[in-house]
Simulated assay, not measured.
Amino acid sequence: MIDGRTVVDVHVHAPRLSTLRPAWLDWADEFSRDHDWRSAYRENGDPEPAAFDALFAEQGVDHVMLFSEYSPRATGIQRFDDLLPLVEHNPQRFHPVANINPHLHFPLVGELQRQVDLGAVALKLHPVHAGFDPGDRELFPVYAKCVELGLPVIYHSGTSSFPGSRNKYGNPELYLDAIDCFPELNVIFAHGGRGWWYEAAAFLVQAKPNVWIDLAGLPPKKLPDYYGARTLSRIAPKMLFGTDWPGVPGASTNVRALAALGLDEVTLRTVVAGNAARLFPRAGIELTTTGRETPDD
Rank of each mutant, 00 (worst) to 15 (best):
G250I: 03
T231G: 07
K222M: 15
G250R: 02
Q206C: 08
L258K: 11
I213P: 05
A236G: 11
N210K: 11
N186A: 15
A201M: 01
Q206S: 12
V255A: 01
R256L: 14
V187E: 04
K208Q: 12
N254T: 01
A257H: 04
D244G: 06
A200H: 05
P237E: 13
P209R: 14
L261S: 09
N186T: 09
N210I: 11
V255L: 07
P237Y: 10
K221Y: 13
N210V: 11
L218D: 08
P220H: 11
A190I: 10
F241W: 06
Q206F: 02
W197V: 00
W196P: 00
K222G: 04
V255R: 03
T243E: 06
I213N: 03
Y227F: 15
V255N: 02
D264Q: 09
A201F: 04
T243H: 06
R256K: 15
P209N: 10
D214P: 05
L263K: 00
G193V: 11
R194H: 14
M239P: 01
F203P: 00
A251T: 01
E199S: 12
L223W: 14
P183E: 02
Y227T: 09
R256Y: 01
G192K: 02
R256E: 10
R234P: 00
L263A: 01
W212H: 08
A201R: 04
A202S: 14
L215T: 15
F203V: 06
W196S: 10
I235M: 11
A202V: 01
G193S: 08
P224K: 09
D225Y: 14
Y198R: 08
N186L: 02
K208S: 06
H191S: 04
W245G: 00
A260N: 13
P219G: 09
A257G: 04
M239Q: 04
S233H: 07
R256D: 05
G262Y: 07
T231I: 13
P249T: 14
L204N: 07
R256T: 10
V211M: 12
S252D: 13
P209G: 06
A201H: 02
L204C: 01
S233N: 12
A202E: 09
Y226R: 06
K221W: 14
H191P: 07
V205P: 01
P183L: 04
R194W: 13
R234Q: 15
W196Y: 12
G217A: 05
N186K: 15
R234D: 10
G228L: 06
A260P: 00
T267Y: 09
